[in-house]
């Protein structure tokens, strides 16, 4: 059995977009985990993980999605999953993460839904 995963990343208007194609499992998960720290993610940005062409995602794959979320949270950014295949969506529901990951039907929809942090809106609480 082959364990093939292709990872494409680009920078969209809202932040980095990584598209995973193939099987995300015990064998291929380290490949994506290794790539995550290299993503330039600024506060207020949105990390898009596009799963449109993901054919398999096991428990190790779930850890990759969680690592992506941890990365985004650490950078004061957000993470969204797009085009989640039915099977993956069922696993996410089983492990109770459907409330944790926001999803959009496509990467374009996710980028359209993103609100850029306005420069005038201070990151610090008002009144300072």
């Amino acid at each position: 059995m082959t364990h093939e995963l292709t990872v494409r990343s680009r920078t969209g208007p809202a932040g980095p977009v990584i598209a995973l194609a193939g099987e995300l499992d015990h064998h291929t998960a380290p490949q994506v985990r290794a790539l995550l720290p290299g993503l330039a993610l600024r506060p207020g940005q949105q990390l898009v993980v596009d799963l449109a062409r993901l054919t398999l995602c096991d428990s190790s794959g779930i850890t990759v999605l969680i690592a992506a979320r941890n990365l985004a949270l650490a950078a004061d950014a957000t993470v969204v999953l797009t085009a989640v295949p039915d099977r993956v969506s069922r696993i996410i529901r089983t492990v109770g993460l459907e409330q944790v990951f926001h999803t959009h039907p496509t990467a374009q929809a996710a980028e359209a839904a993103w609100t850029p942090p306005s420069d005038s809106a201070p990151l610090l609480p008002p009144g300072r």
Partner: peptide, 10 residues
């Protein structure tokens, strides 16, 4: 287990 290499169980 947290951060870069998260692990979990169900």
């Amino acid at each position: 287990y947290n951060g870069h290499d998260p692990r979990f169980c169900t």
